[in-house]
Design a protein around this nucleic acid. Structure first.
Lengths: 147, 147
DNA sequence: CTTCAATTCTTGAATATTCAATATTTTCAA
DNA sequence: TTGAAAATATTGAATATTCAAGAATTGAAG
């Protein structure tokens, strides 16, 4: 009897692949909804993080929205042009830039939130309440265990 | 008592975000290992799919490795230059191109597989056998329910 | 105090990805 | 059989991302 070897297991059985596939699919669905407002997913994340009204530095934001630093800078440039957010130099540490959400940004963010909630509800329906919360729990713990 | 509103839930509680975060982290780890051979994750996936020795069309491959069509074409161009894979026109349908893995590709694929297995084992250790298989199960079912 | 290393953000060039258009072949209806 | 529509892959231009270098500020050791 041959020993089952991991080396030959199909790509579809790898955790990394399943994560990529699921992420891609869910992200695609979310993109589709947010495109109603013409906003990419990352911009929604940025608005959402800033919507606590506090200033957030670029470094902080980059971590929170899963973008690397230069990419974030350029995306923020666009959002500033669209007057969704604005920059303020941190008075306590002038290397830093604090980002704030504008009123226009807040209005947009509310619309986007409700589109996103639509999606989550759609997932809950087709995938189930129990599976969803269990999946979230497992993902959180995976992320934890990776640090 | 205020009704708990999903609209204000922090971004970190959204399934889409947790998936993105987990995917990013696991992918980063895998990238790190594969970089020992100087190969991006997508190329490993391509080699792995082709390593069944059968010819696979570009469309098929694009679906399997989660790349869109033009991106795949250009990545395959690079891999052909590196003589890891080669193109053959499908004799049954000359619109199609069948991709095959070369001997050099096979050798590289074996090395990459063992690097990837290293990672999976590392995950099993820190995250646990049970959680891992449960997570995989849930991801598969999420992907299923999204079609 | 001064200077040197570390931190934070931005910029520009190199690279990669995507969108739209194109070329080729097949399918299928008239 | 012919001609129009669909399927498949590639190309080139437009966009976006990344890497490496740079500018500004802070921290901290001497």
């Amino acid at each position: 009897m041959a020993k089952p070897s991991k080396e030959n297991s199909p790509i579809t059985e790898h955790l990394a692949y399943l994560l990529a596939q699921a992420n891609r699919e869910i992200n695609r669905q979310l993109e589709l909804r947010l495109s109603k407002e013409g906003v990419p997913v990352e911009q929604w994340r940025i608005l959402k993080v800033l919507s606590d009204g506090n200033g957030h530095s670029m470094g902080e934001l980059a971590g929170a929205v899963l973008l690397n630093h230069p990419t974030l800078t350029k995306m923020i440039d666009r959002m500033v042009s669209d007057t969704l957010v604005y920059r303020v130099q941190d008075p306590n540490d002038r290397r830093k830039v604090l980002m704030f959400i504008s009123d226009r940004g807040k209005v947009l963010c509310r619309k986007l939130n409700s589109l996103a909630v639509d999606q989550e509800e759609h997932i809950l329906e087709s995938y189930g309440d129990k599976s969803t919360s269990e999946l979230k729990r497992l993902l959180e713990s995976l992320i934890d265990s990776s640090n």
